[in-house]
């Protein structure tokens, strides 16, 4: 990890510890509070990767991934808010040349939600659209024949309590076809693929958050007069998971930039996040099942984000095509 990334890791760690840790349960129950949204804007986290001439911070991949990693450690919802704005919404708007909307977003005047719909596997199927952070304006990916559109007006929400990303008031919405097309489906696929490294940063960050909690808990929790960490199955499993995580982090924070490595890391870290969070919850026993202990949210978010950010068929086909150098895995 280079010095600049190390500094960013430390800065965002402190930001997350000071501003998010103590309210992480409240975020899950009530959503991200307005003053935290304001602090995220003040910190320059929205627009982090935009070039300075567009009002952004122009951060490199490593620094941006350090932000996502550290936020996901504490609150995957907050990390996804930053990812969604930078890697999906602002990237789309930048590509579409919509500077008017970009300035609204990075100044905090307007908040957008997304309906990733058909870009995801199991997408639109007549049950309404999954909508993340629904607002008065939404970037809708893939409706009206696969175009990327901007919708205005608050969508009708079905008031479903979502599995994950509860801090973002994720819901199911009925969307009206009143949008303005800004990009093609192909453009959005390219943007999605560019997000591989950053998706991996969130998967690994939330895994680290869950494992930190499990390591802490298994040190202090005693059963049959011994700490849980003293038992082989606990200590060995935690050590294996931590080892995997460190190896993945070495890749995440390396100088490598290519999309193939990014796709490989996303594929492996998506599965890893599910496995790590599952063990973290299991080693908390019954207490892990309660939201107050803060580990069940990682378990929910890992699976939820797997469904949203990782497409087990589409993404693996892209990976297979890169590995074989030609179209593969389509039968």
């Amino acid at each position: 990890m280079n010095e600049q990334t190390e500094m960013m890791m430390e800065n965002i760690r402190q930001f997350a510890e000071s501003n998010i840790s103590s309210i992480s349960l409240k975020i899950e129950r009530e959503g991200i509070p307005d003053d935290l949204y304001a602090k995220i804007i003040q910190q320059g986290l929205i627009g982090a990767t935009l070039p300075p001439e567009l009002g952004g911070a122009g951060l490199d991949r490593n620094s941006y991934d350090a932000i996502l990693f550290q936020l996901a450690r504490i609150s995957p919802s907050v990390a996804f808010h930053v990812f969604m704005n930078n890697s999906l919404i602002l990237r789309s708007l930048e590509k579409a040349g919509r500077m008017d909307i970009i300035s609204e977003i990075i100044s905090g005047k307007e908040r957008y939600g997304i309906a990733p719909g058909p870009l995801m596997e199991g997408g639109e199927d007549g049950e309404g659209s999954l909508i993340i952070e629904p607002g008065s304006r939404n970037i809708v990916i893939g409706r009206n024949g696969g175009k990327v559109t901007v919708l205005t007006g608050m969508p009708r929400l079905l008031d479903k309590k979502p599995l994950g990303l509860r801090g973002l008031k994720t819901d199911i919405a009925i969307l009206e076809d009143n949008g303005e097309q800004i990009l093609s489906r192909e453009d959005m696929e390219a943007i999605w693929e560019d997000g591989s490294w950053h998706s991996a940063a969130i998967f690994l960050g939330l895994a680290e958050g869950a494992l930190e909690k499990a390591i802490e808990y298994t040190k202090v929790r005693k059963t049959f007069n011994f700490s849980l960490k003293d038992y082989e199955p606990v200590a060995f499993r935690m050590s294996e998971l931590k080892s995997e995580l460190e190896i993945f982090k070495n890749t995440l924070f390396s100088d490598v930039e290519d999309s193939l490595t990014g796709m490989m890391l996303k594929t492996l870290s998506a599965e890893f996040s599910r496995r790590a969070t599952k063990y973290a919850l299991q080693f908390h026993g019954g207490y892990g099942y309660l939201e107050d202990f803060g580990v069940e949210k990682f378990y929910r978010d890992a699976v939820s984000l797997n469904s949203i950010m990782f497409r087990p068929i589409t993404d693996k086909r892209v990976l297979a095509a890169k590995i074989y150098g030609e179209k593969s895995g389509f039968l």
Partner: peptide
Amino acid sequence: MEITGSHGLKTDLERLFRDSKIMEIW
């Protein structure tokens, strides 16, 4: 959940997923 993607997130499958974990604990 993996097989059904976002469909699973929108249906009662997500509840089944949440309900399942306690089986390995209680």
